[in-house]
Design a protein around this nucleic acid. Structure first.
Lengths: 181, 181
DNA sequence: GTTTTATATATAATCTTTTATATATAAAGG
DNA sequence: CCTTTATATATAAAAGATTATATATAAAAC
């Protein structure tokens, strides 16, 4: 699936592996992320399969960049993937819930400490969506003059925001429930 | 991490690979799932590492079962993992959001069809948490006489319920937003 | 002046997960 | 009578993802 994340970005503009990593980190990291090594190996694979092509760009006082460009074949494949509806919902992996599920024999104070720590972390994440992420989207939209595209970017940001609000509410309820026991 | 899911279940009672797959499917699948093949290979690995031991149980008119039991080493390792707080929050991978993020050039009707389909699927999942999953937890709790443990199981179920409620609200808002455009 | 941060790519090794395949039997449904 | 479902385990192959390591330079921070 990382394939389509990369093609999706390259469909907007040419970019190097480094650029793509930066782009993902400030935009899709909420719902899609990848390690640097995976991005570079996937780009190589996509070039071998003909979905992208690359050329070296020399720079003064900086290492050379390998800039990737989406091919027509890549654009067709991307559009096909986007048009085909997902027939299932995804099931997440949430380590915190796995731990909680098996924590009955544990000292409740240990569990509460963990839940409170998670609350802090999710609170920070929520603030990030409401400030940094929101700003990044607005900047991208105005600099590229893509107010229409920005509506969908905003929708994905709101998902992250709603998710964190829900998570914090659930943590508060669960902390109270365990405290009362 | 599947390691700890398996040890967590085996800490309640001995079970075969088949049993563990069934157990996960009706209890933790909300936030933790695994394929049959992965469960069997992980159990083999855990036995080699001394966290579990197994013996063959003969059955009449059914294939033999290999029943696993947690060792003291396994119990210690599980407890250690449970006690150690997670220092980060997890970032999900949501294919629907990835598609939406790159769908600006697509016909809005195609996007709306996908979102409405997802709404149906999430509505079904929500109902499942409110009925089947809730019942399964109550049955387990009374059959094993573990009302205390059930409070935490209930907390993880409520997470699934809240998540689906949030997801449906977000889908409704996003569908409206795209319809208006 | 030395360390850290940012720019930039690449590969090896490992771990995790999924898909596919093989085998075997009995009960239940049609 | 035939097909499907449920019970039960196991491994091979492939795909996907993480961790670690290597190299190189310049600007900024301390």
């Amino acid at each position: 699936m990382l394939k389509y994340a990369l093609l999706g970005f390259l469909n907007y503009q040419d970019a190097s592996g480094y650029d793509l990593k930066q782009l993902m980190d400030v935009s899709t990291s909420n719902f899609w992320h990848a390690k640097q090594s995976q991005i570079y190996t996937t780009l190589k694979k996509l070039e071998k399969e003909g979905f992208v092509i690359s050329h070296i760009e020399a720079q003064e006082s900086r290492p050379n960049r390998r800039v990737y460009e989406i091919t027509e074949s890549g654009q067709i494949d991307l559009k096909k993937w986007l048009s085909q509806p997902l027939m299932t919902i995804e099931s997440r992996k949430e380590t915190l819930l796995l731990k909680l599920f098996f924590s009955a024999q544990l000292d409740p104070q240990v569990v509460l400490t963990e839940l409170r720590l998670q609350r802090n972390l999710h609170q920070s994440q929520l603030k990030k969506y409401q400030t940094t992420t929101k700003d990044v989207i607005q900047q991208f939209a105005s600099s590229l003059d893509m107010q229409e595209d920005a509506r969908l970017w905003e929708a994905t940001r709101r998902f992250g925001e709603s998710y964190e609000e829900m998570y914090i509410r659930w943590l508060d309820e669960t902390i109270e429930e365990i405290s009362d026991a």
